[in-house]
């Protein structure tokens, strides 16, 4: 009797577990996920959109902005602790959250549920896009820390590929939405905006910010695509610490080698 009861109980659906009061750290991690989405990741996103919009002011302005950013003191430390680690945490914990959520928007096609679903999937999209974007812009090809003056060319060159252009447009839209709506979610979950009317306003404000960022990002992409095509300087392929020295040497050495 007891043995049969045991063997069936292991196969029976148990349903959702009750609250584990006083157990675990998920509160801390989940709230940290929420917070890192705003500070520093969201703040960085705003800076990044604004800096990139310098492209609207032309090649010189854009490259100068990159020079300014790459020349900031503690650049590497800020990159690692201010951007990379929080961003990686937000992304990876976000995938975990996405994994444990569920889609029921077909049965419950309500606005909030649509937004919830879009928030989950836009997060995944942004994760994929940003991984590609960081790899290409920060690590692969011409190194912009060594050659800030290659910045405009590098982005323009990248966007000249149809597929890359498509990926960037989708990435900009997804990131804008995820941040703007995420700001509303932050305000609602942390109890900053609680009332019904106030939440309606906050939601509208979040969505408005999303749209603003989208327009800004797409205008920037447009500026790159429509600007006069830049030429690649072979010096830019010189890499690492010694690059600035070489870039001074090479223009001098080229005429002399031609003379010989």
């Amino acid at each position: 009797m007891a043995s049969t009861a045991q063997s069936t109980s292991s196969t029976l659906p148990k349903g959702v577990a009750p609250l584990r009061a006083g157990v675990g750290n998920s509160f801390l991690w989940r709230r940290l996920h929420s917070l890192t989405g705003i500070v520093p990741v969201g703040l960085f996103l705003l800076e990044h959109f604004l800096s990139n919009a310098e492209a609207l002011n032309g090649v010189g302005a854009y490259n100068a902005q990159v020079k300014f950013l790459t020349g900031l003191p503690f650049r590497l430390g800020m990159e690692i602790f201010g951007i990379f680690i929080p961003l990686a945490f937000h992304a990876l914990y976000g995938v975990y959250i996405w994994w444990r959520g569920e889609n029921n928007v077909i049965d419950y096609p309500w606005a909030g549920n649509w937004f919830y679903t879009v928030q989950r999937y836009s997060g995944i999209l942004v994760f994929a896009y940003v991984t590609y974007h960081i790899w290409y812009m920060r690590f692969a090809g011409v190194h912009l820390v060594d050659h800030y003056d290659a910045s405009f060319w590098k982005v323009q060159h990248e966007l000249s590929h149809q597929l890359a252009l498509g990926i960037y447009v989708v990435g900009v839209i997804a990131a804008s939405w995820h941040f703007g709506y995420g700001l509303f979610l932050f305000a609602a979950k942390w109890g900053i905006v609680t009332g019904k009317k106030a939440q309606k306003r906050a939601q509208a404000a979040g969505i408005a910010l999303s749209i603003l960022l989208m327009l800004m990002g797409l205008a920037t992409v447009y500026a790159f695509v429509t600007a006069e095509p830049q030429k690649k300087n072979p010096v830019w392929d010189q890499h690492s610490e010694s690059a600035p020295e070489q870039s001074r040497l090479i223009p001098q050495s080229t005429p002399s080698s031609q003379a010989r």
């Binding site: 577990a17 009750p18 609250l19 584990r20 009061a21 006083g22 157990v23 675990g24 998920s26 509160f27 989940r30 709230r31 959250i97 959520g101 029921n104 419950y108 309500w110 606005a111 909030g112 549920n113 937004f115 919830y116 679903t117 928030q119 989950r120 979610l185 609602a188 979950k189």
Partner: peptide, 21 residues
């Protein structure tokens, strides 16, 4: 404190289905 345990209030994704349903 109980609501800060695992499975607590932090798991809400603010889909707002609850209030509709």
């Amino acid at each position: 404190a109980a609501l800060m345990g695992d499975g607590g209030i932090q798991e809400c994704g603010y889909a707002q289905n609850c209030v509709e349903a």
